[in-house]
Design a protein around this nucleic acid. Structure first.
Length: 478
DNA sequence: AGATGTTTAGATCTCC
DNA sequence: GGAGATCTAAACATCT
């Protein structure tokens, strides 16, 4: 059996690629050879992520001519912009695990379906169609959860509730607000039997993560308010409910890779308990009584390809501050994302250690170091300013979670490489999710957290998709 | 009456 | 196999 070197593989890939996509042969003058892009990272240095948004390319904008990243996003939809309905590639089982609360749409490559529209969405980026990831068996089948009444969104009710809370501008929401948001953003529930509302109520009551806030006597209306219990804010990542269910010794005894793998499995599996098909996976939870559940199958060519990347895009990112601007933001839909949500979409690793104990990084702010045009790094600064040792790695591309100094340096270099022409401005996020309980979030019962922040190994394309998704959002901050 | 909230029970799945 | 998570369904109570 012949052994192919990296260039060989790249060349063969190029040949097959061009055979499959001859239109890519005629690249622009600025396009670099495909094999180069596959065998080296040099092109990354010329890659302007800020301009890489394929949607932005449509409209006027600077630096949108790079055929390389056009090609990239053409072929590899942005993982980072996987909407909540777009499960991470490779996670065929976790169709509901979203890294990025974008628009509630999952769609294929074809563009016949109308892009999601969120009238209540304020910022300009919300109006353009999001990259679409196929999750259907047929690449021609799209699932737009906002308009498709047949496909049940692959989110747990807890996630839906959380997303609704996130999308609302209020620290506390009413049941009807949750109902409305869900029905507004998920067509399925507009047409479904109202039993789902029962489930929502059941979830609110039963789930400790949700806290009921009684309505004041002078407040008119029916029922009370609901909010995420600050003690459990860490259980929501990007608006997706993340159950904690890992034993402590699991972390201490297993290797980083094993731990990561297992945790990822647990996390992903936890994100979707809805029936689905899993290609090449033992998980099969298909109920014949609801045919729509079949549509959660994720054996699209893309995901099938991604599924083969055994270690790709798995893990999660603890960032309680994803909620930080929920209160003062203008978010009302998935698409109104705060920076932390966008950061979360990076699938970056956040690891805050204190006195040898692992904590989920909750509050803090992302800062870039260096001048505005040449950021050397950016980091998540613990607001407490205590002697926390931060180890933040954005754009983890398969780097083990626990890093030695040399590894960290390596990662830093990798980060710098990836940052390329990025212009990252420091931003401020001062709002907290639970303003009525200032400081409480800082006193979260971290010790109770069994499931810890995970390093997220990403394939290059996925990582880039995440990066792109992030910096697409970052532009708004600029 | 309808909305809201609580509780119980069964089923299915994953993880340990 | 047990435990936990989630979904679904149902019954019941309370409130507006």
């Amino acid at each position: 059996m012949p052994v192919l070197s990296s260039p060989d593989i790249a060349n063969k890939f190029k040949e097959k690629w061009l055979a499959a996509f001859p239109e890519d042969q005629a690249g622009g003058s600025d396009s670099a050879p495909l094999d180069d892009s596959l065998t080296s990272l040099h092109w990354l240095q010329n890659f302007s992520i800020l301009s890489a948004d394929p949607e932005r390319m449509v409209g006027p904008g600077p630096d949108c001519s790079s055929s390389q990243h056009q090609l990239f996003f053409k072929r590899f939809p942005r993982a980072g912009t996987d909407s909540p309905s777009s499960p991470p590639a490779g996670d065929t089982a976790a169709a509901g695990m979203a890294l990025y609360p974008g628009s509630p749409v999952t769609s294929g490559s074809e563009t016949t379906a109308a892009p999601p529209r969120f009238p209540s969405c304020a910022h300009p980026t919300s109006s353009y169609p999001h990259p679409q990831i196929q999750v259907q068996a047929s690449p021609l089948v799209e699932v737009d959860y906002k308009t498709n009444p047949k496909v049940k969104p692959p989110y747990s009710y807890a996630s839906l509730i959380c997303m609704a809370m996130q999308a609302s501008k209020q620290p506390k929401v009413t049941l009807s607000t949750i109902y409305n948001w869900i029905t507004e953003n998920f067509c399925y529930y507009r047409h479904a039997e109202p039993s789902w509302q029962n489930s929502i109520r059941h979830n609110l009551s039963l789930n400790k993560c949700f806290k009921k806030v009684p309505r004041q006597k002078d407040e008119p209306g029916k029922g009370g308010f609901w909010q995420i219990d600050p003690q459990y804010a860490d259980m929501f990542v990007n608006g997706i409910f993340k159950r904690r269910r890992m034993s402590a010794n699991h972390y201490s005894s297993s290797s980083a890779a094993q731990r990561q793998n297992k945790l990822v499995q647990g996390y992903h599996s936890s994100q979707n308990t809805c029936p689905y098909q899993v290609v090449g996976n033992k998980r099969k939870h298909l109920s014949s009584k609801d045919h729509s559940k079949l549509m959660r199958s994720t054996d699209s060519p893309l995901l099938a390809m991604e599924a083969n990347k055994a270690d790709s895009l798995k893990g999660d990112f603890d960032l309680a501050s994803v909620f930080d601007d929920v209160l003062d933001g203008s978010c009302s839909t998935f698409e109104d994302l705060d920076i932390n949500t966008a950061l979360s979409s990076l699938g970056c690793e956040m690891e805050v250690s204190m006195h040898g104990r692992q904590y989920a990084a909750g509050l803090g702010r992302w800062c870039a170091t260096g001048d505005m045009n040449h950021y050397q790094s950016y980091s998540y600064l613990e607001l407490s300013g205590a002697s926390m040792e931060n180890s933040i790695n954005i754009g983890e591309l398969g780097v083990p979670q626990l890093q030695q100094p040399s590894q960290r340096q390596q990662q830093l270099e990798q980060d710098q490489l990836l940052q390329g022409h990025l212009h990252l401005q420091q931003f401020d996020e001062s709002a907290t999710l639970f303003p009525e309980q200032p400081g409480e979030a800082m006193l979260q019962p971290w010790e109770e957290i069994k499931e810890e922040p995970q390093a997220i190994p990403l394939t290059l394309d996925q990582g880039f998709g995440l990066y792109e998704g992030f910096f697409t959002e970052m532009q708004q901050w600029e």
